[in-house]
Amino acid sequence: MATQIRKRGLETEITISATKSSGAGGQNVNKVNTKVELRFSIPNSSILSNREKELLVSRLGSKLTRSGDLILSSEEERSQLRNKNTVIEKFYGLIEWGVRPVKKRIPTKPTKASKRRRIDNKRKNSEKKSRRRNDF
């Protein structure tokens, strides 16, 4: 399910804009719009199912705006194209992580060896602490 996210055509629903990057960089930073911002509205998506939208909203809640928009940006590279590719990779990584089903944990029993190690460790600690006591 998660691997097919890239094939669904989410590019039609994302908005990409470029602005001037901040920080050091001299003339390139002052003149060229290299920072890329990606915006994706989860509630308004027609490609994602309702279940996928619920999963994304619950898992990505801290990264979403009040209206449910996911905003990602990249300004690491000096090139707008490389920043665009970086932010798109981030986007797909987050979406794939967000819609991946959670594996149910299967509880296991401790092995005999682990039980024996635990008991041995407890006995050693007990002996160590009993030697510290100042019995009169």
Rank of each mutant, 00 (worst) to 15 (best):
Q4T: 14
R6C: 07
R8C: 05
R8T: 06
L10E: 05
I16Q: 09
T19W: 00
K20T: 06
S21M: 04
S22L: 02
G23S: 07
Q27H: 10
V29A: 14
N30E: 05
K31I: 09
T34I: 08
E37T: 15
E37D: 11
S41N: 15
P43K: 08
S45R: 07
L48Q: 10
N50G: 06
R51E: 15
E52T: 07
E52A: 09
K53D: 02
K53C: 05
E54N: 06
E54H: 12
S67D: 14
L70K: 03
I71Y: 04
I71V: 15
I71S: 02
L72V: 04
E77V: 00
R82T: 06
N83I: 07
K84S: 08
K84W: 01
N85L: 12
T86Q: 09
I88V: 13
K90Y: 15
K90P: 00
F91C: 09
G93C: 09
G93W: 02
G93T: 11
E96W: 01
W97L: 05
W97I: 00
R100W: 00
R105N: 10
T111G: 15
S114Y: 06
S114D: 08
R116M: 11
R116H: 11
R118F: 12
I119Q: 14
D120K: 13
N125W: 01
K128H: 13
R131C: 02
R132V: 00
R133I: 05
